[in-house]
């Protein structure tokens, strides 16, 4: 079906230039629209502000005990390690580890008693057992993940099971002997 149709363009270059510019404007406009539509997915100002560093007093944590806390919605374990656990963690030959890291790299010098790690298994995100008294600590005196059987040692390093990486250490610093600031 034919309509009242085109003549072929009489000024091809100028018409093309106009069409191209208009098309480019449309494309830029559509792309600019995406900025707010996608940008709104990012954490909002309240979430960001709530993620400010937090302070923690370590004195209530008895030797051999660990506590759980949250920072930015993420679970964190803080463990007051026994002498035996520290020695075990230091004695390991780093070269044999799946994710080689020394215990020194995972603690703060002079504060080796305290281990601070994220509390989600690096396999698929379950929470490993081993904090409370009586919970299985796995074969290496650390944590044992009940979901798929990953064993972490007393430095939070992966020793056995499917998890690929050690429990990561969050950013933190000692502000006093028994006070840390996470974040």
């Amino acid at each position: 079906m034919a309509h009242a149709t085109d003549t072929t363009g009489t000024e091809p270059t100028r018409r093309d230039f106009l069409m191209l510019t208009t098309g480019a404007f449309g494309a830029v406009g559509a792309a600019a629209l995406l900025v707010p539509l996608v940008g709104q997915l990012a954490p909002d100002a309240q979430v960001v502000a709530a993620g400010a560093p937090i302070e923690l007093d370590l004195t209530p944590i008895a030797e051999g005990q660990a506590i759980k806390l949250f920072w930015r919605g993420k679970l964190i374990f803080v463990r007051n390690r026994t002498k035996k656990e520290i020695d075990e963690a230091k004695a390991v030959d780093v070269a044999t580890l799946r994710d080689p890291q020394t215990d020194e790299q995972r603690t703060k010098a002079g504060h080796e008693r305290y281990l601070v790690v994220y509390g989600n298994c690096t396999h698929l995100g379950c929470v490993p057992l081993g904090n409370a008294a009586g919970e299985p600590k796995g074969e290496f005196d650390g944590w044992f993940c009940p979901c798929h059987g990953s064993h972490y040692d007393s430095s939070g390093r992966i020793r056995k099971g499917p998890a690929p990486l050690n429990l990561p250490v969050p950013p933190y610093a000692f502000t006093a002997d028994t006070k840390i600031k996470i974040g």
């Binding site: 900025v35 707010p36 539509l37 940008g39 709104q40 990012a42 909002d44 100002a45 309240q46 979430v47």
Partner: peptide
């Protein structure tokens, strides 16, 4: 008001 104040481009949307 949270949308208007905190969400990125929330006021615009």
């Amino acid at each position: 008001e949270h949308i208007m104040r905190d969400v990125n481009f929330g006021w615009l949307l």
